[in-house]
Computed example of a mutant assay.
Amino acid sequence: MKIALLSYSTKPRGGVVHTLALAEALAATGEDVTVWSLGRGGDSGFFREVAPDVRVRIVPFPEGPVDETVGERILRSISILRDAFDPSPYDIVHAQDCISANAVGRCIRTVHHLDHFTTPELAACHERAIVEPYAHICVSRSVADELAEGWGLAAEVIPNGVAYDRFASTGPAARDAWRSRLGRYVLTVGGIEPRKGSLDLLEAYALLRADHPGVRLVIAGGETLFDYRDYRARWESRAAELGVAPDVLGQVADDDLPPLVAAADAFVFPSVKEGFGLAAMEALAAGVPLVVRDLPVLREVFGPAARFGADPRTLAAHLAAALTDDDPDRRTAGRELAARHTWDSAAQRHLDFYRSSR
């Protein structure tokens, strides 16, 4: 079977991590897999090396005019990918986001999470990418239920895998290097943006510091098509008002991420909208205590392996507990949960779905 997987970015966002891991697991079964993506900022490859049995096609995406709006950038992204992609050689065309789903025509779509956009072009892109694909996959039952309730669409639920060994086997030297640099820290991965609950996290961190003044907040990752400059400015202003100075690392090299996660004293995931929470599952694989937003989808995915906070006060309280309570049962439950989510299993379930939906 010839399979095309399509993503909008080469950067380490959750959907991109998913796309590459799925492609590699599918190729390992003997399928012919090609990953397509737009190459922004001059990128000619993905944020990490991809297994040699996966073909990679990066479509150059030149910088637009200085005054280009988000909506214009979305439309240009769709147009450039559409012009470059020929679906005819493939038995399965599988889009992982609204941009690629709009660009490729008839396809299967993974709906990682559902958003509510106000930018007209983006709202239209989001809607078409839901209603036009001929089949749908969701990474959690909660998102599949949203799809059924809002659009009357039935989706196959195939949870993410996790690179368990990569995060569970970090050596002490690599962990100690991060601890030497940062001391004790609470980590989040995903950048500073509204969906990630970044302002609430600041408030929670300020509360946490009252009793744990030596603990730092470290923020890794973050790359998006959207313009969050106003939100980032509000975030920086509020940090100054609260007297806190988180360590914002930006994109971390792929080899450095597992020890950065493993060295954390706790991992916090305060997103207000998620489909699964792959970065949080990686933290469980590393044996790191996990505090997440109290959302139905995260209750579904993490259950007793995580602590759940609904607002800055309860997030801070649970982070304090994670820093001070040794809970080996919860840690064991987290590792066991992460170990059950394999990309091999996810790939086999995708293949079964591809065959049944053709």
Rank of each mutant, 00 (worst) to 15 (best):
Y354H: 07
H126T: 07
H116V: 13
R331N: 00
D254P: 05
H318R: 02
K2S: 13
R234P: 01
P52S: 15
D255A: 15
I92A: 01
R335M: 10
V215S: 06
L182A: 07
R73F: 13
P133W: 04
A148Q: 12
T118I: 09
D176Q: 11
I78H: 01
G39L: 10
F47D: 02
T314E: 10
I192H: 03
R40P: 06
L187G: 06
A286F: 12
T118S: 05
T332G: 00
A317I: 04
L122M: 07
P270Y: 05
R340C: 08
A51H: 15
L75Y: 01
T119P: 00
P133Q: 02
P52I: 07
V66E: 10
A155H: 05
G191K: 05
A103H: 08
R166T: 15
E31K: 03
Y90N: 00
L26W: 03
K2D: 11
L290E: 07
T324K: 00
G30S: 07
T342K: 00
A206S: 11
P12L: 03
A333M: 00
T314C: 00
A84H: 05
G41W: 08
R76V: 06
V139P: 01
F308R: 09
V248L: 10
K196D: 01
V292F: 02
A316T: 10
T110C: 02
D227Y: 04
L5W: 02
L75T: 12
C98L: 12
P60R: 04
E132C: 07
C107A: 14
A123M: 04
R40E: 15
G30E: 04
G15S: 15
S169Q: 07
R229K: 12
L207S: 11
R335A: 11
Q251P: 03
V297P: 01
S237D: 14
F46T: 08
N160F: 13
A23Y: 08
L26Y: 05
D254Y: 15
A23N: 08
A28E: 12
R166D: 10
R76H: 08
A316Y: 06
P312I: 13
A245R: 15
R330C: 02
T188G: 10
A155K: 01
A220S: 11
G71T: 14
L6Y: 04
K2I: 05
S169H: 09
A283S: 15
D329R: 03
